[in-house]
Amino acid sequence: MDKYTKHTSVAALMNRSNVDTDQIIAKQFLKKVERTGFGQHLFHDWRFNDDGTENAEFELNNPNFANAKILVAGDNFGCGSSREHAPWAIDDYGFNTIVSTSYADIFYNNCFKNGILPIVVDADTLKAIMAEISANEGVAFTVDLENQSMTTPGGIKVHYDLDGFRKNNLLEGLDDIGLTLQHIDKIGSYEEEHKQQFPWLWAS
């Protein structure tokens, strides 16, 4: 996983609530057995017309949002399934930051495992941020993970809360599994007790 560094990038606006994982990555693309290449299918049913051409009406096809790394979206982003294909697609498409008032639990979790920073802002702030993008399409925001801040040219300063552990993993690009395996002895002794307490779970 790449380290998350401070960056100034174009913010794309998607003013929709409850964007669900079925929209983020439609099920016909879930059959791959690899982890890469999902970006081309991100928001497929919204992004493309039936004949395969780009749907000019769709937000992300707006040329001003080309190369955006920040995705600003309505409430409850990522609701629906646990499929990690959703953050894989978002990451592969080129976003590394999402801004919304709330996220579905599993999706939020999955973001951190894929180098994506999901920023939570309050409803008024989101409104102001959306207004700034609408008035100035193509505007770039600065995201500073270390200081947990995001600033806009229009003068909006956001400070967001973040779990310290997750923040550190993003900053360092750390592998969660390796971290857990450092405690393998503790897991081993827990298991010994567990076998005594719940032997029926260990009958094979």
Binding site: S82, E84, H85, N109, K113, I177, T180, L181, I184
Partner: peptide
């Protein structure tokens, strides 16, 4: 509860999950 694929890998390797 449901987990993502990275966590599926995590559980296979460690039988544990970091959870809040």
């Amino acid at each position: 509860f449901g987990i993502g694929t990275s966590e599926v890998e995590h559980v296979m390797a460690t039988q544990c999950l970091p959870q809040s």
